[in-house]
Design a protein around this nucleic acid. Structure first.
Lengths: 356, 356
DNA sequence: GAGCAAAATGAAACCCGTTTCATAAAAGGG
DNA sequence: CCCTTTTATGAAACGGGTTTCATTTTGCTC
């Protein structure tokens, strides 16, 4: 059966569609008697306005595109849930766009991320979203960064675009971003304060701005303390538990062990924790570990992770509020900085001298 | 600047909009010369068809609503990622609808879930989604279950609805669901096979069908083995790590301890693991723990969780494929059962006699 | 070259709301 | 009671595509 339209209502109520529309949107006074009659009919037929038709004329859809790299990485659901909370309050719905590629064996491939992002951007434009928020990403080995930024800047002229914790720092794009360098400094400084001198850093992707910034924070903290950075103690290209385990195992197997490891995210830290356990190295007594992101799982493991919180929920909320303002045409600061916080839990302890 | 439309292209190409539309959709032969001219113009102006307008006439949007209870519960991103994979291949985009309520302090409230689901269902209808998949949920303390089912059945007449791992088993609604009872039986049987007799079960919400089914599986396994079920060893109303820790702590503090705990999900199991650690009870030597869901985090903890896999990714994929068929008007079986698998890892071991 | 099917194209209706503009009716002021 | 506002309402255009139906071309066959 055909859904009921304003025309059906109008006919049965002996009024024009214009009047029905006015009742629907409370956009002009309607005689009480008429209004009641129309409202009654709407209920009777369970009338639901067609959002497509409405959006077509209004030129606003109440739809947002949310692009993220990988929903199974627990950091993103946290951000998303904050975003969801505000977005709903503001009356938006959103398309979830996951840019990870998965092959048939369920392996996650990050290499085509840029391509997928571009596809989604185009798709979202066709769907006429009111705005786009994009988190992470923009990695492409083939194209130089300015080209990626340019595509987005071009897009941002047509629709509000908000970058979260974004790469591409040198652009005119609006961003809500944690101070990644500071976050890393906090973590490393904490280790240094505990007396550690031999500090390794693992994870991240060298092409990603996030990683570069955190690495910079690491280097700055080390340099400020007059500590050397060992080449072989900087291991990148990975963000998963498995990678963390692999990196940490390699570190623990080497002739000279670091006494502390700074991990580029909590997943890596969890992997490091597992590696330490397998190697019979006790944490934090013989090895201190600091994570990054403060995902919920950071408190699930034993011992609980010391980590850097990026206020992920808050970032998501901020994003929703900011994008809403942008959509409304209000001015918003180009960059809103989230100040990371060090969360000291159980995986860090004072340096206890050489372990083995 | 106004986006370019088919009319703009048509005018500049000296053809009618009908012809442009035909080129766009390859729906009728167009002279090569004309086609080339039109395609060139489309590229020149970066023409992007307005999906709203298209959907309005076609009466199909390529949009799906995906309703789930809580994206920060790692089980759901797993399902979602499987769904995402297939859905994208099939050309759908989807609205993510999280039904959890969060208060300003970021506490998660499950109590208004039913209400939120109803709101979303209505919203999705207005947005003209082609189909809806809904996972979990339908819990309402106030309304009887039949009423909830009826609302959905009514809806299902207007748009394809697919329930995932669903509650509401006695309905005419299409479902893709794991055999929850079997899953629980698998888990408990495993414990029994290891020689455990004192088995507790923790977690779940007594109002949820899922929980009831798993509980039934637990009871059946116990009964088949001639083992008693202690009232005080069945603890419900919760699905979080915190709750798991709380439940397990209580069990470990009681005069008579169970030697094994079956947890209604992995989060609870992780909590139990923490409780055991805090209480100085070693797992699996003194206490065996089995989880449920096989979320990625099950392998992140130490020791790794023995658990029941519901093939979450596969469930998601199946859902997308099935919903697509339903949308296409093809016949699909009313119920597609996912057969759970027991994943034996490190948190279970043979019963070693009374612990203390 | 007539005859006919297939190809190529345009005009106009349609999808379902919103909005503008004009008109009619009711209400308030002097 | 007439005049001016407000209030109340309808006709019609619009948004940006798709689709039907009719008409004109073109390509072949005999």
């Amino acid at each position: 059966m055909r859904p009921v339209t304003v025309y059906d209502i109008a006919r049965e109520a002996n009024v024009s569609v214009a009047t029905v529309s006015r009742v629907l949107n409370n956009t002009a006074p309607v005689k009480k008697e008429t209004r009641d009659r129309i409202v009654a009919l709407m209920h009777k037929h369970q009338f639901q306005p067609n959002a497509l038709a409405r959006s077509l004329t209004r030129k606003e859809t109440g739809m947002i595109g949310f692009i993220l790299p990988d929903i199974t990485n627990p950091f993103f659901p946290e951000v998303l849930s904050g975003f969801d909370y505000e977005a709903r309050k503001l009356g938006y719905t959103y398309f979830l766009c996951d840019t990870i590629s998965t092959n048939e064996e369920n392996q996650r491939l990050y290499d085509r991320q840029y391509e997928r992002e571009s596809q989604y951007l185009s798709l979202l434009m066709e769907k006429q979203v009111d705005g786009i928020v994009m988190i992470g990403g923009r990695v492409d080995l083939a194209k130089p960064e300015p080209a990626l930024a340019q595509e987005l800047e071009e897009l941002a002229k047509r629709v509000p675009v908000l970058l979260l914790n974004g790469s591409l720092p040198k652009t005119k794009l609006n961003r809500v971003a944690a101070d990644q360098k500071l976050g890393a400094q906090l973590a490393v400084q904490h280790l240094i304060d505990l007396g550690h001198r031999d500090i390794a850093v693992i994870g991240g992707f060298s092409k990603m701005t996030n990683t570069q910034q955190r690495l910079a924070g690491f280097r700055t903290a080390m340099k400020d303390a007059g500590l050397p950075v060992h080449r072989e103690w900087v291991m990148t290209e990975g963000f998963s538990v498995e990678k963390g385990q692999e990196f940490a195992s390699r570190l623990l197997d080497s002739k000279r062990r670091p006494s502390a490891i700074f991990c580029m995210n909590d997943l890596l830290a969890i992997g490091a924790l597992k590696a330490a356990h397998r190697a019979g190295v006790s944490v934090p007594e013989q090895l201190s570990i600091v994570g990054y992101d403060d995902i919920p799982q950071a408190t699930y493991c034993i011992p609980e992770l010391t980590t850097v919180s990026l206020l992920s929920q808050e970032t998501g909320r901020q994003a929703a509020r900011t994008l809403d303002k942008m959509i409304a045409g209000k001015k918003v600061p180009l960059l809103q900085t989230i100040v990371p916080e060090l969360i000291v839990r159980e995986t860090t302890a004072p340096y206890q001298g050489p372990s083995s």
